[in-house]
Amino acid sequence: MPTATPIIEVRGLVNAFEDNVIHRNLDLTVRRGEVIGIVGGSGTGKSVLLRSILGLRHPDAGSVKVFGKDLTKLNDDERRLEEQRWGVMFQDGALFSALTVAENVQVAYREHLHMPKLLMDELADVKIRMVGLRPDARDLYPSELSGGMRKRASLARALALDPEILFLDEPTAGLDPIGAAAFDELVNNLKHTLGLTVFMVTHDLDSLYAVCDRVAVLAEQRVILIGTMDDMMASDHPWIREYFHGPRARAAQKSR
């Protein structure tokens, strides 16, 4: 169950590419144990927000605190320790193409924990099965995987160190409806078994209904609304109305 303790706190975030301001004084709080969905039109800076939280982009102003710490203020070693407490699944998987699926999962074990080979193999197999990949996929290279398998393999890598926060960038984009539904189910399952906090950038209305405790809407360079799906439905902001009451939204709602 989500508790009130914030795990991610974004305050007054400003991001701009030259004259193009993406975020202006953006505030966002993610609570421990919740699944939060980030929605917004193209170009509203969902990915930039994600990259700012992950420290891949240095914000032009404002602070980002994860686990109560401002990562930009930590030294390299401290930051590396904090980074091991989250897992990230990039949109196209971003698997290391020179490594097999199992080796991709083991990267963190090998680099951070210096784990014996046998245990490393066992744990990689546990993760691979956990994300619903066929066990024999362990020895395949990323170029030999289908899009859906690549996403699952990437999820397995993100889960390698049993992170506290899982970042998902468009996890169901490019999956067929059955695969997408299975992925939602998987995220739900992981949340319950591992007690994860999930930060999910998505456009998939079915996913929003199926797994998100709260939804944050990015527009007008900030978070204009954050709340449950019911709050979204009740809002009369024109973009939110169009998004959650459009024809595809109605279909997704009907199927609940």
Binding site: D125, V126, R129, P135, D136, R138, N189
Partner: peptide
Amino acid sequence: ENVDSTPIP
């Protein structure tokens, strides 16, 4: 229960 252990061939 979730750490399945079906042996891999």
